[in-house]
Simulated assay, not measured.
Amino acid sequence: MRVMVMVKATEDSEEGIMPSTDLFEAMGKFNEELANAGIMLSGDGLKPSKLGKRVAFDGASRRVIDGPFAETRELVAGYWIWEVKDMAEAVEWVKRCPNPMPGPSEIEIRPFYEMADFAEIASPEGQASHDRAGEKVAARDGKAG
Rank of each mutant, 00 (worst) to 15 (best):
S20C: 03
S13H: 05
K85T: 08
G38D: 02
G134L: 09
R54S: 12
K29P: 00
I39G: 02
I121Q: 15
G16Q: 06
E125L: 05
N99E: 12
G142V: 12
A35K: 15
F57L: 11
A128R: 13
A138C: 09
K29N: 10
I81Y: 03
D12I: 02
V84K: 11
Y113A: 12
I107Y: 12
G142H: 11
A26K: 15
V3Y: 15
L46C: 01
P19M: 09
V94R: 06
I17W: 09
W82R: 06
R62I: 00
D22C: 09
L34S: 15
A77K: 02
P104Y: 08
A35V: 15
D86F: 03
H130E: 13
W93Y: 14
I107N: 03
V91G: 04
A122E: 08
N99W: 04
A88W: 02
F30P: 01
R73G: 06
I109K: 04
S61P: 00
A88Q: 13
D117N: 15
I107V: 15
D12E: 15
C97P: 10
F57N: 00
N31W: 13
L46R: 03
F57T: 05
S42V: 05
L34R: 13
S42P: 01
G78F: 00
K53I: 00
P111I: 11
E108I: 02
